[in-house]
Simulated scan of single mutants.
Amino acid sequence: MKTQMIYEVLLTAIQDNNFDNLQSTIQAILELPFVICDNNYNVVMQVPQQYYQDELWDSMLKHKTVIPEMVYLIQKDRYQEALDQNDNIIYIDYGIGERIQRIVASIRFEEKVVGYICVLLTDRKVSDDEFERIEILIKFLSLYLSKHIVPHIPNNDMYFHLQDIFANNDIRREDLKNHIIKSITELNGGFVIAYTSVIDKSNEIVYLYQLFNHVNRLDYIHPILDDNHLYLLFTDVKGTDLRSFIQKRLKPILNQTKVVDLSFGISNYFTSIHDILTFKQQAIHAHSFTDNHDYCFFKDVAVEDLFTQIQKSDENNLYLLPALEVLKDYDKEYNSNYMFTLEIYIKQLCSSQDTCQILNIHRNSLLYRLDKIQEITSLNLKDKKVITQLLCNFYIYY
């Protein structure tokens, strides 16, 4: 089938607004088994309706979606990574696709992923003409899926008001009191906010959609999706033991959805819904400290975050203690590590027990090092003002 004819039959199929005709048209164009998913990994079309002893294909045919176990395998085989790094068609002959080779591609509309197409190469290599057909189909499907596929957003006033609040960073607390409607004030207190995100325009946004749809079915959790940002507003939180709360309410969500690469920033506990924007920012800031951990509590990094913000705004060395540069030079000259010892000691608020545990040294060794540090720098480590200034120095300058 020539290129011009392909465009014509596709145009006719979409004008008919008949899904069965559209599916038959795509089948006639490809002449190969294919499956099309939306960006939630829900099956839109799969032809033919038969099993091929292919783990991924057969699972999609049975469940009409990519189940969490398969999402994990897709991630493990780095299909998602390959699609993220390449806007073109990907040929796959490894992992799940080792027995039956396939070609896959993300379907994009206005630079955002709206779906995926996978074509099984059951008994032969794909020709150049077939690649061209698939490229044409991808362009067509980008328009089709953009109009027919959307995240399963709750159709209620509470969700839209919450989304409006979380998406707006300019609302003042005073204005927020007038903005919050009755349905929101009736939410069960207390509250905690969890936040996660993926890179903008990344295929990994599918994980946010899957997590959003999963959480939306749970009680006392209100998910709010804002482009590549996902907020979870936990309500009816009992007590202020956030670590226990995480074990009971957040970890099962991560385990059930198999979203191993998502990490969450966790706000402090709060009781007034009018303070929601403050604690939203706490969750966002905590997320920046998660590193390779599943979650991070704002209360554990509040001091680091405070000094990080100061560091960004203070570009001079007005409060830098010269003694620290002396200690730094001494370490360099004599290959010692007194600077690190002092940093740990100060950040542990002069707790000898905690410092020894972190450094894995005996208390006598620590006392010797501290005496040596005072000798080198002339700092008085019993002076509370000196300790305070050292604490600021380590968080701002080092």
Rank of each mutant, 00 (worst) to 15 (best):
197 S>N: 14
258 K>P: 03
281 Q>L: 12
214 H>R: 11
167 A>P: 04
263 S>R: 08
154 P>G: 10
177 K>T: 14
206 V>C: 09
231 Y>D: 00
174 E>Y: 10
215 V>I: 15
284 I>Q: 07
198 V>I: 13
156 N>G: 06
241 D>W: 05
285 H>L: 12
204 E>K: 14
270 F>W: 06
212 F>H: 05
204 E>H: 15
178 N>I: 13
211 L>V: 15
240 T>C: 07
247 Q>Y: 04
213 N>W: 01
184 I>C: 02
218 L>S: 03
214 H>N: 11
184 I>Q: 00
165 I>N: 05
250 L>F: 01
268 N>V: 09
151 P>R: 06
177 K>F: 08
233 L>C: 02
218 L>C: 04
230 L>C: 08
157 D>W: 03
171 I>E: 07
281 Q>G: 01
220 Y>H: 13
263 S>A: 13
253 I>P: 06
208 L>V: 13
186 E>M: 11
187 L>V: 05
149 I>M: 08
153 I>V: 14
198 V>H: 10
178 N>Y: 13
173 R>I: 04
183 S>K: 10
160 F>I: 11
276 I>H: 03
280 K>G: 01
258 K>T: 14
189 G>T: 15
277 L>H: 07
189 G>S: 15
225 L>P: 02
222 H>W: 08
171 I>S: 05
195 Y>I: 07
167 A>G: 04
208 L>C: 07
154 P>C: 07
182 K>Y: 10
188 N>K: 15
228 N>T: 08
257 T>K: 02
271 T>N: 14
227 D>C: 10
265 G>R: 02
179 H>Y: 12
258 K>F: 14
225 L>N: 06
252 P>K: 02
235 T>L: 00
233 L>M: 04
224 I>S: 00
217 R>H: 12
168 N>F: 00
192 V>C: 05
241 D>Y: 07
229 H>P: 02
201 K>P: 00
284 I>H: 00
227 D>A: 14
253 I>V: 15
218 L>N: 04
166 F>T: 10
213 N>Q: 15
165 I>H: 05
217 R>M: 12
181 I>D: 09
216 N>D: 13
252 P>I: 12
256 Q>H: 09
205 I>L: 10
248 K>W: 03
237 V>P: 00
169 N>W: 05
193 I>K: 01
184 I>A: 02
180 I>E: 02
163 Q>Y: 03
231 Y>H: 03
169 N>Y: 08
193 I>Y: 00
186 E>P: 01
177 K>P: 06
222 H>D: 03
157 D>F: 08
288 S>F: 08
156 N>Y: 11
158 M>F: 05
175 D>I: 06
208 L>N: 03
265 G>M: 08
224 I>D: 00
205 I>M: 12
263 S>D: 10
182 K>S: 15
276 I>Y: 02
226 D>A: 11
202 S>R: 11
202 S>G: 14
268 N>P: 06
276 I>M: 03
266 I>P: 00
180 I>C: 07
260 V>R: 11
182 K>H: 12
192 V>N: 00
247 Q>A: 09
177 K>R: 11
283 A>Q: 01
253 I>D: 01
166 F>S: 05
251 K>W: 02
204 E>I: 15
262 L>Y: 05
169 N>Q: 10
160 F>L: 11
256 Q>W: 05
175 D>S: 14
231 Y>I: 03
260 V>Q: 10
216 N>V: 11
259 V>D: 04
191 F>G: 00
162 L>T: 05
275 D>Q: 13
